[in-house]
């Protein structure tokens, strides 16, 4: 990280499903767990709703890291949405990697409504990782 980036605080955009991860994040709150305030949550009904376009748009708008999180396999409120998401992102991330996107800036997770602690650790780890990577200048430069 360059000197100019000292004190850099990353922008994390999290797309999380309404039923599991959102409720898990709520649980972290009701349990008064603490985590870094860099994340901004966009609530979607299900990771099945997650369009690859959302990720590109988030980076275009200056995100340094993007998190997608939903229900564990078998727990999807709609039965199957998370399975579709897993398929789509397994391949999409490979494509992004191939064109030079740093996959360390994208994280996918399953966090259930009972896993407030997991939400906290995912957010903490991801925020720290992206902070260490520094601002996503490469993408921001093409977005100017």
């Amino acid at each position: 990280m360059s000197e100019a980036d000292q004190g850099f605080e990353p922008h994390i955009v999290a797309f999380i499903c309404n039923w599991c991860t959102y409720a898990g994040a709520d649980l972290a709150g009701t349990s008064r767990m603490q985590y870094q305030p860099n994340v901004r949550v966009i609530r979607i009904p299900c990771t099945g709703r997650m369009d690859p376009l959302f990720v590109l748009k988030a980076f275009e708008r200056g995100a340094d890291g993007v998190l997608i999180s939903g229900c564990h396999p078998g727990d999807c409120h709609y039965g199957e949405g998370n399975y579709h998401a897993r398929r789509k992102f397994a391949i999409f991330r490979k494509l992004l990697e191939f064109v030079g996107i740093d996959l360390a800036r994208i994280q996918f997770s399953w966090i259930s409504a009972a896993e407030g602690g997991k939400w906290v650790s995912v957010i903490e780890d991801f925020t720290n990782r992206v902070r260490a990577l520094g601002p996503y200048r490469a993408y921001q430069e093409i977005s100017l």
Partner: peptide
Amino acid sequence: PPFTTFKTDDRGEFIL
């Protein structure tokens, strides 16, 4: 077509 379906044991090694 692969993106109209799924398997419950599809690989998800990238998911925490």
